[in-house]
Design a protein around this nucleic acid. Sequence first.
RNA 1: GGGCCCGUAGCUCAAUGGUUAGAGCCGGCCGCUCAUAACGGUCUGGUUGUAGGUUCGAGUCCUACCGGGCCUACCA
Length: 566
Amino acid sequence: MSKILITSALPYINGIKHLGNLAGSQLPADVYARFQRARGNEVLAICATDEHGTPAELAAQAAGQDVRTYCDEQHRLQAEVGARFGLSWDWFGRSSSHQNAALTQHFSDVLEDQGFIEERVDRQLYSLADKRFLPDRYVEGICPVCGYPKARGDQCDNCGSLLDPLDLKEPYSVISGSRDLEVRDTRHLYLLQTKLAERIRAWVNTRQHWPTLARSIALKHLDEGLIDRGITRDLSWGVPVTRGGQPRTGMEGKVFYVWFDAPIEYIAATQEWADATGGDWRAWWRTDAGADQVRYVEFMGKDNVAFHSVSFPATILGSGEPWKTVDTLKAFNWLNWYGGKFSTSQGRGIFMDSALEILPADCWRWYLTSNSPEHSDSTFTFEQLVAAVNRDLADVLGNFVNRILKFCEGRFEGVVPAGGEPGPLEAKLCADVAGALADLTAQFEAIEVRKSAQALRALWVLGNEYLQEAAPWSAIKTDQVRAGVIVRTAVNLVGLYGRVSAPIIPFAAEAMRRAVGESSDMWPGVDISAELSRIPEGRALTTPPILFSKIEDTQVAAWSARFGAA
RNA sequence: GGGCCCGUAGCUCAAUGGUUAGAGCCGGCCGCUCAUAACGGUCUGGUUGUAGGUUCGAGUCCUACCGGGCCUACCA
């Protein structure tokens, strides 16, 4: 048994996430966690809301709430909808926790002790109307290069020039529209990534299990040269900047930049878990306390790779302390929406809460897994959703379960038939299942999401093939015992499916296990003959309702209209 | 501007430089009748974006072009 630490990118606090966020980090992380638990490994699956930063402040303001209240409420909503999707976190924390504040301040201290942090004075635009400094994307004005009137502070969308907010002509605040701005000096801490570059490169070169996407992004940044990053901001909502536990002189009222404290929350959330459960967080994160034996796997969208492959490692490695670093970095591409992107700010696409209003979680989990944006961007379409649900779940799996349980109910009074011995067809079935199961196991182990779904489906198909060939409806006319063997075998197959399907469709999997009285949710072994003899003769079965209802054309039409699919 | 990725059947996707480029869906045909008109079998379907090059051998490696996408760091 090994220890596996799993984290998924922290969902930002400003509202329920859309299906793209789910597909690209939280769902695959959960599938992997469930699989590894079933394998008997000790798993710790950690996630949390990322609560700091300007967008949170603005969202709270728009909602008419103070930011703490807003975050309390949004955290609860995200935790609830995640649970309804079957996301089986061991802990769903909050980057606003006191544990994260303490740990973030600790990293700041040790990084400064190691000579990797220094103070610098910047000149930044201050909005008198908003009473705040403006991050560069919250300033717009006339582009000094091409004259475009709505250039952002960091870049002009018209000519592509990279800009400094101070270069803009006639700048105004995006927050309030106010032009009452002035340039003020502001003091900030900088993380000296330039001094850590070679250490990071050496570390990246030791990472054997990174896909090319992650490695190439990391090496690209290293090749182009890291820049020293400002890690503090002029905001009120965040982790206060301190030195040695006291407010830092000259930086009172400032907080750490959200990208500095957010990854640290992976560790802090584990501390939150430990404080709540009595667990040992050091065994997962400190290599001097056993974490060198842990396999650490991170899940994220491709936009997060730079921060996880370079920035966060700079924090960890620069501390000089024995922290665990990521072994496998699994990155995903985008799930698009009818030509464009899902957009939180524009409310475009399908969000997790409304998704559950129209279909059960398992349908979404299956669709988003079998069509995962794993190796390239993929596009959500209702057409593909219908195909995934109706063909794979309803026809292939759901109907198999239903047809055999109904048959057992009608011909054997819902009791697992006794007597008889397996024959050649059962031997062939065992061999086929063994092969398919080995493939499925390998795909899950390799975190090949799409291929895992394909392999699982192949396993389901075997059930229908077996029934077709064994034809218990014919056998029962001449040989009651033989028909009993077939039914018993197929019922056992339902129990097996209830175990191996659980990582992707946990709710239906549990229903299958319950129907045949399978109490184990552990991964099957290699002796398939034994695995298909677990449901004892004479056991009374309970046929559950249809596992998956089919999607009707009228529903698709209604959903397309509701969600603006075109 | 710089960097990266992709282009394979009508659709979604596979193929350590090595048999005749494979699956699923869709479509055609046959079978079955336990089941959610579900299931099984079978067939059709390809100039692997274009043009060159390297090689005994290229979907795979190299060059150019065409087309699509992504990243480019204080928006999370």
